[in-house]
Computed example of a mutant assay.
Amino acid sequence: MAVVVVVMGVSGSGKTTVGTALAARLGVPYAEADEFHPEENIAKMTSGTALTDADRLPWLRAIAAWIGEHAETGGVVTCSALKRSYRDLLRAGGPAWFLHLHADQEVIAGRLSGRTGHFMPPSLLASQFADLHPLESDEPGHRVDVTAPVEDVVAEAEAAAALR
Rank of each mutant, 00 (worst) to 15 (best):
E139Y: 01
I42A: 12
A109V: 06
T20L: 03
H118T: 11
T147V: 06
R84N: 13
A65H: 09
V146C: 13
D34E: 13
L125Y: 04
V150Y: 01
D131Q: 02
S113F: 05
A103N: 05
F36R: 00
L112E: 05
H70R: 15
L135P: 05
Q128R: 00
S127L: 10
V10L: 05
S13P: 09
T73Q: 14
V28Y: 04
G110V: 11
A160K: 03
E69L: 14
H70Q: 14
K15T: 03
P38M: 05
L124V: 11
P58F: 00
R87Y: 07
S137R: 11
E156N: 08
W59M: 00
A148T: 11
S13Y: 01
D145C: 07
P149D: 14
S11Q: 11
A96P: 02
V6T: 08
A161C: 13
A65I: 03
E35C: 11
S113V: 14
A54M: 08
E35P: 04
R143D: 10
P38R: 06
M8Q: 07
V146P: 02
H100T: 08
E69Q: 15
E35M: 12
K44D: 03
E35I: 06
V7Q: 00
G68W: 02
Q128S: 01
M1F: 04
R111E: 10
T116A: 09
V3R: 15
A64P: 12
A64W: 00
N41Q: 12
A92T: 14
G14N: 12
A148L: 15
V77Q: 01
L101G: 07
S11M: 07
S123P: 06
L22Y: 00
N41M: 02
M45L: 13
P38Y: 00
Q105M: 10
G141L: 11
D104K: 05
G110K: 09
L132R: 06
S113D: 15
H142M: 13
M8V: 07
R56K: 12
W97K: 05
G9K: 00
S11F: 03
R61K: 15
F98V: 09
A157S: 12
G117K: 01
A157G: 15
V3F: 12
P95I: 04
Y30P: 14
A160P: 02
G19A: 05
T73C: 12
E136H: 13
S47L: 02
D131L: 05
R115S: 06
A21G: 07
A109D: 06
A155K: 12
I67E: 13
E156G: 14
G117E: 00
A157M: 10
A103L: 05
L90P: 02
P149R: 04
K44H: 05
D104M: 10
L90M: 01
H37I: 09
G110E: 07
A65K: 15
G19S: 05
P58K: 06
P122S: 07
L82M: 09
M8K: 07
M8C: 14
R91K: 12
L22N: 06
S137K: 10
P121L: 03
D55A: 05
A160S: 12
V154Y: 01
S123R: 14
T73A: 14
G12F: 09
E40D: 14
